[in-house]
Design a protein around this nucleic acid. Structure first.
Length: 220
DNA sequence: CGCTCGATATTCT
DNA sequence: GAATATCGAGCGA
């Protein structure tokens, strides 16, 4: 199995966020002997891009700190942070070669492998409630700050991305749960998926942004 | 269904 | 002390 390499993540963060929709987030659990015990995975159906000095809503806007340092380092790494005092969120560091920082927040998955484990970790059965939010999916996959900084381009790594290139219709909208830089349309989601984190207003359902028609002017 | 509230890391005032 | 890239329990309609 291959994974997108660093060249995939060394592009404008919003482009990476768009192109991650439809790929698989994979969590590998290994035993003491190094053998794979379980695979947990899901198709990414919703992401958000966070920039640097161009983006007041980004953790990186204030410059490097201990928490956000991954956003300023190598691309393709997991940036895991603790939010609102009770859950984790997972991002992948990604940025244009001429930018200093950036990351893509994974907001929702369609559960694929290891459903029973995810249901246990979440203490919930409903597949539509299992990974339909950034805090939910980290709990379902057992992602904590212990995984902060892991290389997500390593196809044998505990946490990585795998291709899953069935055609997707991707739309964009303003990001969720922020109060600054609300005009940027840097949330990307699979317009046909029932697994996104919340209902998408009708005004945004028509804004198809595929790889073919995408330009930066669509998302500003 | 929609509302309020508690959980409490990290950063800012 | 207050705000933030949230979630879920507990409530009442």
């Amino acid at each position: 199995m291959t994974s997108p390499d660093e060249s995939f993540y060394f592009r404008p963060t919003a482009s990476v966020a768009r192109d991650l929709v439809g790929k698989k987030l994979v969590r590998i659990v290994r035993g003491n002997d190094g053998q794979v015990v379980r695979r947990l995975s899901g198709v990414i159906v919703e992401t958000e891009a966070y920039g640097h000095s161009d983006d007041k809503a980004s953790h990186a806007y204030i410059g490097p700190t201990r928490r956000n340092s991954i956003m300023f380092g190598a691309v393709g790494r997991a940036y895991v942070y603790f939010s609102y005092g009770n859950h984790f969120c997972v991002n992948i560091s990604a940025r244009s070669p001429n930018a200093k920082a950036g990351a893509v927040l994974i907001r929702a998955l369609q559960p694929l492998e290891g459903l029973d484990i995810m249901q246990q970790l979440r203490n919930r059965k409903d597949l539509y409630d299992l990974t339909s939010g950034p805090g939910k999916l980290t709990k379902a996959m057992g992602i904590t700050n212990l995984l902060n900084g892991v290389d997500m381009t390593d196809p044998d790594g505990e946490l990585h991305i795998e291709p899953e290139d069935a055609p997707r219709s991707v739309a964009c909208s303003p990001r969720v749960g922020i109060s600054r830089a609300v005009s940027k349309k840097w949330r990307f989601f699979d317009i046909d998926s029932p697994f996104v984190s919340r209902t998408v207003p009708a005004i945004h359902r028509a804004r198809i942004v595929t790889a073919r028609v995408y330009t930066n002017s669509h998302i500003h």
